[in-house]
Computed example of a mutant assay.
Amino acid sequence: MPKVTFIYPDGRKRDVEPQSGLTILEIARKFDIDIEGACEGSLACSTCHVIVDPEWSERLDEPSEDEEDMLDLAFGLTPTSRLGCQITVTDDLDGLVVSLPSETRSAMG
């Protein structure tokens, strides 16, 4: 199983070992990590915004145009920002590190 490290806004780290094939959003929910995901992963909001460690950013597939449009709504956007619902963790991403932003912004209700 791949290992994923979540870094909280206060600097705390949490390592989890999810099954391969889950998205960052699904992993966060499975391990009670606070990511909103208001649209349930349907690519209609930016509340699952995460910041991918620069070492890992280049290893991910490029974001789709739809993902980039939703990222434009994210609070605290960075060059390595991604939507957690669009990152599927595989064994190739063993060791992935993502940071949780200090705030999220929801355009949903």
Results as ranks from 00 to 15, higher is better:
residue 18 P to A: 03
residue 52 V to D: 09
residue 27 I to H: 00
residue 51 I to M: 10
residue 106 S to W: 03
residue 52 V to S: 05
residue 38 A to D: 14
residue 43 L to M: 15
residue 61 D to Y: 01
residue 54 P to V: 11
residue 86 Q to R: 14
residue 107 A to M: 13
residue 27 I to Y: 02
residue 20 S to G: 11
residue 59 R to S: 14
residue 95 G to N: 06
residue 38 A to W: 01
residue 48 C to K: 02
residue 45 C to N: 01
residue 17 E to V: 14
residue 23 T to N: 10
residue 97 V to P: 09
residue 29 R to A: 11
residue 29 R to W: 15
residue 38 A to V: 13
residue 5 T to P: 10
residue 33 I to G: 07
residue 70 M to C: 10
residue 7 I to P: 03
residue 103 E to W: 00
residue 20 S to V: 06
residue 3 K to I: 13
residue 95 G to P: 09
residue 61 D to L: 07
residue 103 E to H: 11
residue 4 V to A: 04
residue 72 D to P: 01
residue 81 S to H: 02
residue 44 A to D: 03
residue 71 L to F: 07
residue 70 M to E: 12
residue 37 G to H: 12
residue 78 T to Y: 04
residue 54 P to M: 02
residue 2 P to N: 01
residue 79 P to E: 12
residue 1 M to H: 13
residue 34 D to L: 04
residue 97 V to W: 05
residue 8 Y to W: 10
residue 6 F to Q: 08
residue 56 W to E: 01
residue 46 S to D: 08
residue 99 S to R: 12
residue 33 I to C: 08
residue 41 G to K: 01
residue 103 E to T: 13
residue 76 G to K: 07
residue 33 I to H: 05
residue 17 E to P: 02
residue 79 P to F: 04
residue 57 S to P: 00
residue 6 F to L: 09
residue 102 S to E: 15
residue 85 C to M: 06
residue 63 P to R: 03
residue 19 Q to M: 08
residue 82 R to M: 06
residue 76 G to P: 12
residue 99 S to D: 11
residue 74 A to S: 13
residue 28 A to F: 05
residue 87 I to E: 06
residue 10 D to P: 01
residue 6 F to W: 07
residue 39 C to N: 03
residue 71 L to N: 08
residue 76 G to A: 11
residue 5 T to C: 13
residue 64 S to L: 11
residue 37 G to D: 11
residue 30 K to R: 13
residue 42 S to G: 10
residue 10 D to Y: 01
residue 59 R to M: 15
